[in-house]
Amino acid sequence: MSSPAESALGWWGVLLAILAGTMRGGTPFLFVSLGECLTEKSGKINLGLEGTLLMGAMSAYAISYLTGSPWLGVLVAGISGLALGAIHGWLSQQPRVNDVAVGIAMIIFGSGLAFFFGKPFIKPTAPQLPTIDLAGWSQNPAVEAALKISPLFILGALLAPFLHWFFSSTRWGLYIRAVGDSPAAARAMGISPFKVRMLSVMAGSFLAGIGGASLSLYYPGVWTERISSGQGLMAVALVIFARWNPLQCLLASLLFGGAQALGPALQSVGIKEGYYLFNAAPYILTLVIMILTCSPQRTLTGAPGALGQEDA
């Protein structure tokens, strides 16, 4: 058995792998969670983002392959998300229609469409998004690879503070928060909860579609039917973990992405037991944090008051 210390980068390699994996694996989480955050701020839950993510991944890959332009693929992924979001936004606001149920139906519908139309695109190799190389100074190929950063990640990282500012300092942000906290009060202010929620859900799905594009055009950079290992559903938990704060969504996405990278990285230096339980670590952590921070006396700070309640 060779000890980790003998390896090329050893534990430094693990740190590097986690750092790199955090950015690579965190990117789809980032977009989906920001999208879900936007959706939930308006008082609706969209579990269907799993389907949106798959649809986004498929359409981005397909368009990139057909036109040769990955950026066009990203745009189309967003638009396909927008379309699915429109269905969810409209349907989940009908009286007595539960948004959780619609979300699960949308997972089936969205993934069905993505798989159906994605068949011809599994084999071909589509042009990938370019990466920005920050490691010109280093001769080490591992460092170079780790510091190849996707513009999508940068875009997402910028989007988080923007959304934070948007929610706290703009009129539209206020509308969304008002609708999310109390549709009745919002209506009294002359805001249409239906329209605001519709737009929020659609915009959120647009972002989730882009998250899908980051899966198929950046990392891992393929289109297969198993490309999303539940990131879309996880986003719902992630947003709660982040307390509906876009900046914390960024941190939480990095944490979840890093946790994904940690398993293989640790195995590569010799720690191998219990990888199934390890893979479940993000879920356990989220649950523990929810248990610790919730209490019947007060609702979660930042929780939209009308979240998940039927009162459209």
Partner: peptide, 16 residues
């Protein structure tokens, strides 16, 4: 995947 599309459509309409 056709059966998924089928299931999805039926459920969305029934929920509506």
């Amino acid at each position: 995947a056709t059966v998924l599309v089928f299931e999805g459509i039926i459920f969305l309409v029934v929920l509506y």
